[in-house]
Design a protein around this nucleic acid. Sequence first.
DNA 1: CCCATAAGTCACCTTTTTGTAACCACTATT
DNA 2: AATAGTGGTTACAAAAAGGTGACTTATGGG
Lengths: 120, 120
Amino acid sequence: MGRKVIDNPNLCSLVHAMNIIGGKWKPIIMYLLANGSLRFGKLLMFTPTISKKVLTEQLKELEEDGLIIRQKFPEIPPRVEYSLSEKGKALLPVLKALSDWTMETYGNEIGFEQCRIVTL
Amino acid sequence: MGRKVIDNPNLCSLVHAMNIIGGKWKPIIMYLLANGSLRFGKLLMFTPTISKKVLTEQLKELEEDGLIIRQKFPEIPPRVEYSLSEKGKALLPVLKALSDWTMETYGNEIGFEQCRIVTL
DNA sequence: CCCATAAGTCACCTTTTTGTAACCACTATT
DNA sequence: AATAGTGGTTACAAAAAGGTGACTTATGGG
């Protein structure tokens, strides 16, 4: 059928990007860590509708991809802090641009109820 | 338990953004349409591992969210062309920034085999 | 009359993702 | 002796997403 196969680096990196931060919760986790490190329990509270299991999985993947750093303190009860790596910090402007685009494009349609933050 | 609930617009819009373009194929479809309109069949060829059903679904959702425009020509056999709307075009710089970040961050780790483009 | 074509739809099935609840380790407190 | 606190893990169930192949529509060509 006379086909041609060509590489498209931009497309490939977009595919790669979506594999890395395409998960529903990953951008949110990154954003929550933008202002400093957070413990597992705090992250669980700040993303109200996520389950413990899923949060654990997402954090593990983000760590494997080098976007966040997991620091474990040998205390009892245990304490684990998550923070952004340099790679992760470099992604923040992109997330900000995405957030801005969404605000400008969908502004009033965004349902704030779905993503309130709970603090103590 | 003395909790406080606070709105966080940036976070909310990020959640919203991921609902809209978080699908595995959506950024790729947008990117393919960056240079002009494409027919359904072409889109199907350009994204080799997507199935007809899934492509249909993704296109429908993108259209519902106002990112792409579907133009149907009353011909036999039918012809349908998809193109970016203004909203969609406004997202392109963000996708570009994401692509750039991925290249800079993961450069050589990106598997080009997975996302070659097939043309006639 | 039969086939091909483009852009889907539909029914059915498999795979992946997500949720739920229980459990663990270790120590301090009650 | 029982309980609480933290950061998980595990088994199981439910839901969502994705794949496959047949079918549709209308018409022109052989």
